[in-house]
């Protein structure tokens, strides 16, 4: 993809005997939000650090805004929020933001409104040492948003945030993505990023195991759908005889089917008329999908 702001091709990074990143290819286009998922030690942070030019690839290549990682042009295009960062406790939020604005060559006046964007304007002139964890995380995001970067690299930006803060966090991301910023963030939870991310890449043991939209990933995982049918009083046996599946407690039958069989199954249900009182469809859980790709990993590693 030539219009991608970040393109990673066949990237491999080794630390001695440890292969932290193993032949990963990935591209992120402007306005696109991509989530990088993976177990602890999957290689997410290592990938970020290589995109920033801190680590030299053992193999493969990276292109950031048409330049090599770590070059002047690349640094101007990229903003980063590390996994763990402790801002100087004695500085105020506004001072931290001013500092990074000046490092990035952005006027502090243009940067300070970001404190409002992330919702900590009221604490702007308080020492960072008095901030809650969520507030520090918000300050980190504000810092990353300085100067409307073309590529945002956020390493586990929502760890430790409450659900409300998380939602607000993704709203801010959405706004900057709409303005053209490409976002690559890492996370441990699929359910958290549902509907908030355009594309997902799942890494395991350094390698990219799956990539696509959440719907695509779910479909490709081919995990069964569970349809729970509640029969009218005394009709459970009849329903079970017609549909098959599994009898559970007095009145219910549970069917499992693949995604492409769902419509057919519902059609047969409709034929049962008054015998069916209620239907409940459970799509595969997002954590199931995530686990599916992790499980595929373990097989892959064993082979």
């Amino acid at each position: 993809m030539s219009d991608a702001i970040l393109s990673v091709e066949d990237l491999t990074i080794r630390f001695g005997a440890v292969t932290a990143v193993d032949g990963v290819s990935l591209a992120v286009a402007p306005s696109e939000r991509v989530a990088l998922l993976g177990h602890n030690g999957a290689g997410k942070s290592t990938l970020f650090k290589t995109v920033l030019g801190f680590l030299t690839p053992t193999g493969g290549r990276i292109d950031v805004a048409g330049s090599t990682p770590g070059s002047d042009a690349a640094r101007r295009a990229v903003s980063y929020l590390p996994e763990q960062v402790v801002f100087p406790k004695a500085l105020t939020g506004a001072e931290v933001l001013t500092y990074f604005a000046r490092l990035k060559g952005v006027s502090p006046e243009a940067a300070l409104p970001l404190l409002d964007t992330v919702g900590i304007a009221a604490a702007a002139h308080r020492a960072v040492g008095t901030y809650s964890k969520g507030m520090r995380q918000r300050l980190g995001l504000a810092q990353a948003l300085i100067g409307s970067p073309r590529l945002l690299l956020l390493d586990e930006p929502t760890s430790g945030l409450d659900p409300v803060s998380r939602r607000e966090f993704y709203e801010v991301l959405e706004a900057s993505a709409r303005a053209g910023t490409a976002v690559l963030l890492s996370s441990h939870s699929l359910s958290e990023i549902e509907n908030r991310i355009d594309r997902i890449a799942i890494m395991a043991r350094g390698a990219l195991r799956a990539e696509g939209s959440l719907a695509e990933l779910s479909r490709r995982a081919g995990l069964p759908i569970r349809i729970r049918v509640e029969a009218a009083a005394g009709r459970a046996d009849a329903v079970h005889a017609r549909l098959g599946g599994e009898r559970v407690n007095g009145r219910s039958v549970v069917l499992t089917c693949r995604a492409d069989e769902k419509v057919g199954a519902l059609g047969r249900l409709a034929d049962l008329g008054a015998d069916v009182v209620d239907v409940d469809i459970a799509l595969p859980d997002l954590d199931d999908v995530y686990r599916h790709y992790s499980a595929a990993t373990d097989e892959g590693a064993a082979r």
């Binding site: 801190f54 002047d72 980063y80 960062v85 801002f87 990074f100 490092l103 990035k104 060559g105």
Partner: peptide, 13 residues
Amino acid sequence: ERGTLALVLATPV
């Protein structure tokens, strides 16, 4: 140790 160096060195400095 505090992780700010990564942040600082990601800027054009």
